[in-house]
Write a protein that binds this DNA or RNA. Sequence first.
DNA 1: CGTTAATATTTAACGTGTTATATAAATTGG
DNA 2: CCAATTTATATAACACGTTAAATATTAACG
Lengths: 169, 169
Amino acid sequence: MSARSPANSVDPDAPRAPLRAFSRSLPMALLKAREAVMGRFRPILHAHDLTEQQWRVLRALTSADGFRAGELARLSSISMPSLSRILRALEKRALIERGVEDKDLRAAQISITASGRALIALIAPHSERGYADITAAFGDERLATLYRLLDELATCLTDGTEPVEVDEE
Amino acid sequence: MSARSPANSVDPDAPRAPLRAFSRSLPMALLKAREAVMGRFRPILHAHDLTEQQWRVLRALTSADGFRAGELARLSSISMPSLSRILRALEKRALIERGVEDKDLRAAQISITASGRALIALIAPHSERGYADITAAFGDERLATLYRLLDELATCLTDGTEPVEVDEE
DNA sequence: CGTTAATATTTAACGTGTTATATAAATTGG
DNA sequence: CCAATTTATATAACACGTTAAATATTAACG
């Protein structure tokens, strides 16, 4: 016998949950948009052996000199465990350097090296071309609106009442 | 001596790339919004030992019976390698079942079990409450606009001229 | 001071994303 | 009908996300 359609033709004991369609799933919509956008940038980074996250860290390091790991994690939206691995990899490639802070021996001072800056300078124009493509395809105004909405959404969900209570049954 | 500020006080040989600020990084904005949203849903799923992706697969399976793996991957925006692992895990927990298609022995027919439906029914109301919270905090109209923009962005980047050419130097 | 609590960072374990490759079945072409 | 190509799925390898725990240093307190 064929094994098609097993023993589960909608058991009436298991109530049909009227689940919202994927088209109205907010995490899904955000994911797909992000995938589409990253499809434009990933090849550029991959051509230089950088992951998206490594790129974010390098970028953040150009805005000042001598960050601590925690600051870097917040700036680049990368968790500390991931950042720890990323810094190890970037240091091995001599794209960043670490020192220790005088006043706090736990904290590391992380800076980008000249090689790191050179790599960024190599990639930056490609990145900007990606943005130009996206802007051309999507429109300047709609893009601005999207930025605003995304920022407002993150803000209004991050502020105030933090997590949802999960009552165990 | 202290190891602060190593040997890289802005080497003039490494040109300062005028990188766009993080606040105008589209992948970053999408990521942060998604993180904020998932912060509302992750605890619910975690309380039932489900990852976000496992949840997506289960959800997709409620829309019809007997999917092939490839269809499921497209529906839930999960890559085939990931899906393969996820199906193995869900099958072990008896939340899904696999059969083989008569006409094509390569393809598997994947269905949700009664236990799987029961789990969904258990979680669904919590999920809807999360959406209610988000709608209340963000507003119905803005949310609708955001959905529309996200969908349009993904569409306009996925259609037409696919990848950016990466000229190796 | 010395003991405890808080902070900064790392490591571990597991699941997923991405890329490349492998396996197996179906299709195509000769 | 058999060899070569395509298609569906699985596996491997490496990096990251998440959670929890470990380590090391500083601060706080008695």
